[in-house]
Computed example of a mutant assay.
Amino acid sequence: MASTTDGAATGPEPGKFASRKMADLTHAPGRGDDSLTVWVGRYLDLAVRGVRSTEVTGKIDRHLGRFQTWFAGGFGHDRISTVTRREVAGWREHLAASPVRTLADGRVQLMAPATVNNHLAHLSAFFTWTAVHAPAGLLPHSDPTARVELLRLPAPTPRALGDAQVRTVKNVLDRIEGFHRLTGRAHRALDAVPAVHAHARPLRDRAIVHLMLGTGLRRAEVAGLDLTQLDPADPAELRRRRVARLTGVRGKGRTSRTVFLGLDSRVALADYLEHERPSDVDGKSAALFLSASSIATRRAGGRLSPRSINTVIGEIGRIHDLEVTDAERRLGVLRPHDLRHTFGYQLSRESGHNRAELEHRLGHANDRYLRLYTNPPDDVAAGWVENL
């Protein structure tokens, strides 16, 4: 509780309550307002902002905002007391039928079941909190999200790259600077040093792909890395030493682990640290991977976002497929998790399917996902049954 100088209570400090903890709203003005807008605002102020990360806070805000818009559009009001289980189930079906984008072949991509379930989870957390803090009678139907079933998720499929695909991806990475060079007449002069586009950071992009392919790190884990976690952090030492690592990698469920770096990762990181990163450093730069300092809208300190890493990986896949004529080697859309699956399969093969090593290096102890990460790519699985 916050208090004035004479010790009188003034109410709770925003951002001090987890979503399922008690907050004293006894003296809150208009505490009986029968409005989704009012209660969503209170939930975000008291239980989300300052408690959850900025990225998660924004996601919760968007998801609850979508429910508010859908509900008010269907009923012409936003009275929270009228929300029942039927409306929550209806919103679930609305989300499941919502188009997300139109694919290149003209097909409409709908919202993924996992994304729909994520919306429902955030709505459930909101109503759980509101049921505890709202005055008696505001929710006559209790928690309307209770017993609303989640959508059934499709069986996960392996997404590891085949050995041939890995080979051509690494070939593209070896030549990545050439894809970003300026080709105008002034830049083709014999005495001119090859220049790249102002925002391009090919050495950084190569280091990110090699790191994810050689460690299985998730995109959020890569975005969260600081330079101080790299041991050694000196480029010359990275090239010389055979044992280098990233310490304290923060994963899901508040886990932390150490990952070792292979030769490709060490060399790529050394090149980036020596030739590109110094030009992007400012007084707040702690992150290992930085966005270009020439970007006006970059984050304070320059830390890349997980979405930026999606873009980096996707662009490498696009360049790869422009170079490859063999349909069997084409990647389609390359995603960060494809690199994680590839690492999981290759580590399983090289370690003799050592379960303890897989759990430790992948940072995921769930059997279901361990089996998924260690499934072979299609060309390997097809080869096993070719002559049976």
Rank of each mutant, 00 (worst) to 15 (best):
A2K: 13
D6G: 12
P14D: 06
R20V: 08
L25H: 04
P29R: 13
W39L: 01
V40I: 15
A47L: 04
G50A: 13
G58P: 01
G65N: 14
F67N: 03
Q68R: 13
G76L: 03
G76W: 06
E87H: 12
V88E: 01
V88G: 02
G90E: 11
R92E: 09
L95F: 08
A96Q: 05
V108I: 13
L110P: 03
V116Y: 02
N117C: 10
N118H: 12
A121N: 13
H133N: 03
G137D: 07
G137N: 08
V148H: 00
V148T: 10
E149L: 04
L153E: 10
A160E: 06
G162P: 01
T168A: 00
V172S: 13
L173P: 06
H187A: 11
L203M: 05
R204L: 09
D205K: 09
A207D: 03
I208A: 02
H210G: 02
M212S: 05
G216K: 04
A223W: 04
L225F: 10
L225A: 06
A244Y: 06
R245H: 10
T247Q: 15
G248W: 09
F260D: 05
G262L: 04
D271Y: 03
L273F: 00
E274L: 06
P278Q: 07
S293G: 08
A296I: 08
R298G: 04
I309Q: 05
I309Y: 04
N310P: 01
T311W: 15
V312Y: 03
I319R: 10
I319W: 05
V324K: 03
T325G: 15
E328H: 15
E328W: 14
R329L: 11
H337F: 10
R349Q: 06
E350N: 13
H353W: 07
N354P: 07
L362N: 01
H364C: 01
D378L: 10
V380G: 12
A382I: 01
